[in-house]
């Protein structure tokens, strides 16, 4: 049997009362949702002005992720397709407003009113056709286009996801870029198969340089070496990003153009400046497969 729930049944069927119950009874699930939401909120990089924001939680489910938003003082609107999950959210007295809806049908929200969106392990559900009328490409398009519209200029949307494979990741990213978003994948702990967490970080419109998506750091990623060594220094961070504003050709050129020599030189430079730099290993600067 597959361990991927989205291959078993449509979300509104999979997330029935029994499954929803786990979101109140399993301390492990509660803990995971909380830590993923904390990280997603951090990646939203909201302005540090102490003013509560109006946020969206897409696939809000039992409201565990929303709880993190509330704890940080924000107002939120949650959307989910499973009434069983939303019932649990009511039980938990979620402070956000809940909507029963299908993100694949697009969000019915006014333009430019939402300050940011998070979504925990939900978007990969859109990659399946659960009904004969479903076309994953069109549903992803409807979703990302409507999301882009309702966000304020410069707002971010952060999706924690578990894509099934490269094609799926590409399908999701393409839909997002086509809708007008820029951004890319942030990988936390890429070296650890257990701790590895993937976030799609998207920005709507223009944002000031120092907070642009290209300055996002993945946790525990050193970017230059790509090993499965679990003991890698977790402080080594960098990003993998695709920026739709950059012409495709240049992007490719950058990826393959920087050889081992270039990396060694940069590393030396950084060391001289007193920065912490990952040790040189046999993986440094080695060719690797494209990630999307």
């Amino acid at each position: 049997m597959s361990s991927r729930p989205e291959l078993l049944a449509p979300p509104e069927v999979f997330y029935d009362d029994t499954e929803a119950r786990k979101y109140t009874s399993s301390s492990r699930i509660i803990e995971i949702q909380a830590s993923l939401s904390e990280r997603a909120l951090e990646l939203l990089a909201l302005p540090d002005d102490d003013i509560p924001k109006l946020l969206l939680d897409i696939g809000c489910g039992s409201g565990l992720s929303g709880e993190t938003l509330s704890e940080n003082g924000h107002h939120w609107i949650g959307l989910d397709i499973s009434l069983s999950m939303l019932d649990v959210a009511l039980e938990r007295e979620a402070e956000g407003d809940l909507l029963l809806g299908d993100m694949g049908q697009g969000l019915g929200l006014r333009p430019g009113v939402i300050d940011g969106a998070i979504s925990i392990s939900a978007v990969q559900w859109l990659c399946n056709a659960d009904k004969s009328s479903h076309n994953p490409r069109l549903r992803l398009k409807a979703f990302f286009t409507s999301l882009y519209k309702c966000l304020t200029n410069g707002a971010r949307a952060v999706f924690q996801l578990y894509p099934e494979n490269l094609q799926q990741r590409e399908l999701i990213l393409n839909a997002a870029m086509h809708a007008g978003f820029s951004g890319g994948i942030v990988m936390d702990y890429p070296h650890s198969s257990k701790k590895r967490k993937e976030f799609l970080v998207l920005t709507c419109g223009q944002r000031s340089v120092n907070t642009s998506a290209s300055s996002i750091k993945g946790k525990g990623e050193d970017g230059e070496s790509w090993s499965d060594d679990e003991s890698e220094d977790e402080e080594n961070k960098t990003v993998s990003i695709s920026d739709r504003h950059r012409p495709r050709k240049k992007q490719k050129h950058n990826k393959s153009g920087k050889g081992k020599e270039w990396i060694m030189r940069k590393k030396d430079q950084m060391r001289r400046r007193g920065n912490e730099v990952p040790p040189d290993t046999k993986y440094t600067g080695r060719k690797r497969k494209a990630r999307f």
């Binding site: 959307l79 397709i81 019932d87 009511l90 809940l98 029963l100 809806g101 299908d102 019915g108």
Partner: peptide
């Protein structure tokens, strides 16, 4: 119902 609008199309 129960404060939740059903926006499913």
């Amino acid at each position: 119902n129960k404060g939740i609008p059903n926006m499913l199309l």
